[in-house]
């Protein structure tokens, strides 16, 4: 009962402070919106870049050419062994006839009837970092005559992905720290204008929790409204980024729609906005409680 009485009073007090601090409240919401929108866009871009690299990485296949004299059973045994390698994500057998069809589809004026390409297994590595190990293991397999060496391409790609990942994380952290600082500062300004009232509240016997609660609700409200507004702006940005991505990477094997990227980022933005508002308000009001 006491809890509900206090909660109702804290909510009412938070609304009073929100209204009385009209301009500062508006400023806090705008700042939260801009900061959360920037954070969400950077996060969205980071997600698409990550998917892009995975998608490109998937096309870095290793081909193991088999000896032409192998029986059907022997080919099957090799295929099973390759599929069981821990570095293998997927392995597909390509017969000489299929290889010829692919070749003809790329070079239309090619006039040959017998396939010059031996039977092969096309392997997708679990990660581009596994390529050197995978090639070494394939080379040692009995019945494998040669393996296409894409180690250099893979290591270059792996390097780019690593740099991209580090840069992405650094950028996200910088943005997040900036966001925290800006939201804390603006919430702090809002609470600063109530420092006298905070002192009076304590003088009449209000507990720390009772004094803090309205301001924590206020901070959370700033964060929540900021997150909702930033989500509204994020929807058109998402569509643009998504269109650009699909124009850039055609025939993407990753079913992006299944990941609900937008709704996940919106949910994250709401949580981040709420938590940041909460924490920054708690920190700011603590200063005046000492």
């Amino acid at each position: 009962m006491r809890f509900f009485i206090d909660l109702r009073r804290s909510l009412r007090e938070a609304m009073v402070v929100f209204r009385r601090n009209g301009l500062v409240s508006l400023g806090c919401i705008v700042i939260s919106t801009v900061a959360l929108f920037s954070f969400s866009v950077i996060l969205l871009m980071a997600v698409y870049v990550r998917f892009g690299t995975i998608s490109i990485g998937d096309r870095l296949n290793v081909t193991a050419f088999l000896e032409a004299t192998l029986t059907h059973e022997e080919v099957n045994t090799i295929l099973v062994r390759i599929r069981h390698l821990p570095e293998t994500k997927d392995a597909v057998y390509v017969s000489p006839e299929e290889a010829l069809r692919e070749l003809k589809s790329k070079f239309h004026d090619l006039e040959i009837d017998a396939s010059p390409i031996p039977p092969s297994v096309r392997i997708t590595p679990g990660d581009t970092a596994y390529v050197p190990v995978l090639i070494a293991q394939l080379t040692e397999l009995e019945g494998v005559s040669s393996v296409t060496d894409i180690t250099e391409a893979a290591s270059n790609f792996f390097g780019i992905v690593q740099i991209g990942t580090i840069l992405g994380i650094a950028l996200l952290l910088i943005f997040f720290a900036g966001f925290l600082f800006i939201v804390s500062a603006s919430t702090g300004i809002s609470i600063y204008s109530f420092r006298r009232e905070i002192e009076i509240m304590q003088l009449v016997g209000a507990s720390r929790t009772f004094v803090q609660n309205p301001f924590i609700i206020l901070g959370s409200l700033y964060g929540l409204i900021g997150a909702l507004l930033s989500s509204l702006f994020l929807i058109p940005s998402y569509q643009r980024i998504d269109n650009f991505y699909h124009a850039f990477i055609a025939f993407d094997p990753i079913p992006l729609d299944e990941y609900n990227i937008l709704s996940r980022i919106i949910l994250l933005a709401l949580l981040v906005g709420l938590a940041t508002g909460w924490i920054s308000a708690k920190q700011s009001v603590r200063r005046y409680l000492k």
Partner: peptide, 9 residues
């Protein structure tokens, strides 16, 4: 307010 802080109804 002096009573509200004590959760008085």
């Amino acid at each position: 307010y002096a009573l509200e802080v004590q959760s008085v109804p």
